[in-house]
């Protein structure tokens, strides 16, 4: 595909076409994606603008995207993709931009706590194979020092049998360790 791509060799639009088989050039800016996006008012660039910025293949705008808050506010609700007349898989593009933003250490300062939440979540999965809700909240709150109303929820959750104190663990913990080692922790040295 790359040999006769309509995109510049090094642009994000090119890697999105090559890696995700999604062509941003198909977008004709109808705006349906942005109109239906539930978090559009929270975003610095709504989804149609994200796609437009990618179309320009301008490195300055690409840089702005990787540093944007939008990519982290997107909740992958799939509304934009569902309504796009050109069937452009925007949530997949968002995933790609998030992964690059993280790799290149360009995460928007306002989004750092969202990334911390995802990391705390994955830590639980890495060590136990499952999510420990109590552990997640504690870990996340420790990382962000954001002690809010969730602390007030905890006793009510306990009263309803909704919080486990002893995290569940899968038996084959080594398999989890290996999956993480071969994917997200690739660059870390093996123990």
């Amino acid at each position: 595909m790359s040999s006769h791509s309509i995109y510049k060799e090094k642009s994000l639009a090119h890697s999105i076409e090559h890696d995700l088989q999604v062509s941003v050039a198909k977008c004709y800016q109808c705006g349906k994606c942005s109109a239906g996006c539930p978090v559009n008012s929270e975003m610095d660039y709504p989804p149609s603008v994200v796609i437009r910025m990618l179309q320009t293949e301008d490195p300055i705008l690409e840089e702005k995207l990787l540093r944007s808050y939008s990519i982290w506010m997107c909740v992958t609700c799939e509304m934009c993709y569902g309504r796009c007349p050109m069937e452009i898989d925007i949530p997949k593009v968002m995933d790609h931009l998030r992964e690059l933003s993280l790799q290149e250490k360009k995460v928007n300062p306002k989004a750092k706590h969202i990334v911390q939440f995802h990391k705390a979540f994955l830590d639980s999965v890495k060590y136990t194979g499952r999510l420990s809700e109590l552990g997640l909240i504690a870990d996340y709150k420790m990382r962000t020092f954001a002690l809010t109303q969730d602390v007030a929820l905890a006793p009510k959750m306990i009263a309803r049998g909704k919080l486990h104190f002893i995290p569940e663990r899968i038996k084959n913990k080594l398999s989890m360790k290996n999956i993480f080692k071969k994917t997200i922790n690739k660059k870390e040295k093996p123990e």
Binding site: F117, K119, L122, V125, T183, I184
Partner: peptide, 10 residues
Amino acid sequence: TAAHNLNHDL
């Protein structure tokens, strides 16, 4: 959400 937000292979 966490895994697909941070790493595709994972």
